[in-house]
């Protein structure tokens, strides 16, 4: 997973996440929207045929005083917690 920051302001972040597609990006976006202090989160993937940019670009906007990178780290942590919790519940149901 290679990251390339496109825009990094105190409350706005644009970052390219190489090698990912809707599978992870949509989960991450969902987690970001549940994260405290995040006012907007979206991602954009162009189809291969469009030429140029094909890796997803994630854009996050946060409330004042909330660092967007921190919010992203929190959201990733949330996805991890959810995965672990899902795994445990699923195994218990087997």
């Amino acid at each position: 997973m290679e990251l390339r920051v496109i825009e990094n302001e105190p409350s706005e972040l644009s970052i390219e996440i190489a090698g990912e597609d809707h599978t992870f990006m949509n989960v991450l976006k969902g987690a970001l929207l549940e994260t405290e202090g995040v006012t907007a989160a979206t991602y954009d993937v162009n189809p291969e045929q469009s030429g140029g940019q094909t890796d997803p670009v994630l854009t996050i906007k946060t409330e004042e005083g909330r660092d967007a990178l921190d919010a992203l780290a929190d959201a990733a942590g949330n996805v991890k917690a959810k995965s672990t919790s899902f795994r445990e519940t699923f195994e218990a149901a087997l």
Binding site: M1, E20, F24, K80
Partner: peptide, 17 residues
């Protein structure tokens, strides 16, 4: 499948920190 999501979130978290 769940583990693969976890692995990617873990990688991202580390890369961001």
């Amino acid at each position: 499948a769940v583990d693969s999501l976890y692995a990617r979130a873990d990688e991202l978290e580390e890369a961001v920190q």
